[in-house]
Write a protein that binds this DNA or RNA. Structure first.
Lengths: 348, 348
DNA sequence: GTTAGCACTCATCCAAGAAGAGTGCTAACA
DNA sequence: TGTTAGCACTCTTCTTGGATGAGTGCTAAC
């Protein structure tokens, strides 16, 4: 895997990858000598390229086209050749100016983050909120809407707000609801939703809940409120930017990629996978194991607050992506969002 | 505008429109005599077609292609020729089975309605929630999140729930908040958001609010809570179905339509326009005055509960749309959603 | 008024040839 | 021994031109 290339080969591979990133077209030996000053003739470059092809870094679509870097080349490029400079102060300021989320709800923030990130990178932005079931309980409140109907507000440790309407005993008055929510908030504080569900199930079986009417009601209500798995929410922004990429210029590929971005299923699986890791992650092409996004790369990072990881964001585009620009954008964005959420979740 | 055609011309125009709807290709005189039994020769049909072209109902892409119905033909077809049969009991049942929204929040219902409607019609579904500013106040509640931070829950007359985090005086206790929300709920009940804003502004100027600390706080809080215009929410489902249509088969058109559906701006304008009207509305092609959706038609209808119109839904597709199928679907869906929302908003 | 016949038009398809880009090999050079 | 110039070869792309066929419009006959 970790093949070692001599300096000349590295330089030429780097040149090919970078030329290909900007042009999206097979790179020929002459083009390289023209654009880069290696003091080598096209013929010498050809020899090196031939070697690189032998090693699996390059491939040629046909005899008389130039060569295209393979996914292996991109891996090598990213691992060994790519120098990621941090954002300069000016750039950081510029990005920071784009991100303004005062008093927005978390969902709106995520949507907007996706939009901005997509705009900055010129690729399709992805933001995934945490799974409901993986959130940590902080607070639950009930609001009487109308006869027998309650609005449940659930706030997670990370500040995610969910609401839902449930049916309930119409005789429950405001005082009782307050008692119920106090009881639940005290009892369930700091538990994960999974623990909450177990606790509720266990409590319902105890003797006491048979006699304590209020407790029984509290348990019933919270079960109804926290029961169903709400689906993962992924915000996809800048879908149409994908269509600008020459690798998706044919109607067939356009259809395929739009369908994939629309259904979100594949995206969720991919973003889920990167949930585990720390820092910026890169999935290149077939590495993802999903045929639907053949030819795509993902650059992702998790965002979190002090209570742990709460979501994943990133950018999807063709394998041929200017990683040196995209990686800092994703990285910075994830850090920024984390900081915002920490501020959001701050206690006194 | 209301040109009258003799029966033969009508029949032939109808045949051409319907053939074109299924084939998406220019219809020739022979094809018509083959598929329909008019007891006329192609030559006679040609004469009629020539007349129809003269009148602006048909056009030919070039000399030796068949003819394509113009938008005028579609208008005529819909106004005079189209017979919309109501859904049969079986179909209605079938649709009804697809629509299941138990205990979902309005937003989820809308998203799901769009999805189902898109699936039923095989075209892109659109659902627009009502503008925040046009909703009618029913209820506001405050939940203390953490030091100085309040979660505001606003429920509109139609059952739309909005929440938002605002900063507030950290010394406000639960009892005071309850008093505040009681005061506001009493005072603002039944007003439109615009009226609410006026009322709040007027109240803040009165003598009393200078002395009554609690009232002042109530007014400040509700102002912060109901202040900003949240953007219109349009749910677009089945975007990729648009790409299946032969009229959007070229990369350029694909890009254009995807961009338009993604930005939602044009869609909002169009859906806004149909807000005013009652029942199913049809916008055909250039009638919409938007170049971005050239070649598209919209079939829309409002949905409402007893308190009035609260949103618009519909389907967008090529002008060449099987209106006889799409119209009942949109109509039925709008009625169904209305009924669901009426149930949702029911008071004791 | 209807229809058969026919010349005409025009898009589409296919094949063949020219152009151009790039390779791989070989032989000469430093 | 590594580097380079030269050259034949390959293969795509673009263009051209002819064949095909669908469809029209006109005219004359029924």
């Amino acid at each position: 895997m970790a093949e070692v290339l001599n300096e000349r080969s590295q330089n030429i591979l780097e040149a090919i990858v970078e030329d290909y990133i900007t042009s999206a077209e097979p790179v020929g030996s002459r083009a390289i000598t023209r654009r880069h000053s290696f003091n080598l003739s096209p013929a010498s470059v050809r020899n090196v390229m031939s070697d690189l092809e032998e090693m699996g870094f390059l491939c040629s679509p046909h005899t008389s086209a130039g060569r295209i870097p393979t996914e292996k080349a991109f891996h090598y490029y990213i691992d060994s050749l790519l120098q990621i400079q941090d954002l300069s102060k000016e750039e950081e300021l510029r990005l920071r100016k784009k991100y303004r989320f005062q008093g927005m709800r978390i969902e709106d923030i995520m949507r907007e983050v996706g939009r901005v990130m997509s705009g900055l990178s010129n690729y399709t932005g992805l933001v995934m909120a945490p799974k409901f079931a993986s959130t940590v309980f902080r607070q639950i409140e009930f609001i009487r809407l109308s006869y027998g109907r309650l609005l449940v507000i659930y706030v997670s440790e990370t500040g995610l707000v969910q609401n839902k309407v449930i049916e309930a005993d119409p005789d429950l008055g405001p005082r009782e609801l307050e008692k119920i929510s106090n009881y639940l908030n005290h009892k369930l504080n700091g538990m994960s939703i999974l623990e909450v569900r177990e606790t509720l199930a266990a409590e319902l079986k105890t003797e006491r809940s048979r006699y304590d009417q209020l407790q029984k009601q509290a348990l019933d209500l919270s079960r109804a409120a926290l029961q169903d798995e709400t689906e993962d929410t992924v915000f996809v922004s800048g879908t149409s930017l994908m269509l600008e990429q020459p690798e998706f210029s044919t109607p067939d590929r356009m259809k395929r990629i739009i369908r994939t971005l629309e259904s979100k299923k594949t995206l969720i699986e991919l973003l889920d996978r990167s949930q585990a890791a720390q820092g910026v992650q890169i999935f290149i092409g077939s590495q993802s194991q999903h045929v639907e996004i053949e030819g795509c790369s993902l650059v992702t990072s998790n965002f979190s607050n002090k209570k742990g990881a709460i979501g994943t964001l990133g950018v999807i585009g063709p394998v041929r992506m200017p990683y040196s620009q995209v990686i800092p954008i994703v990285d910075f964005t994830a850090q920024l969002v984390s900081r915002i959420l920490e501020r959001e979740a701050e206690y006194e």
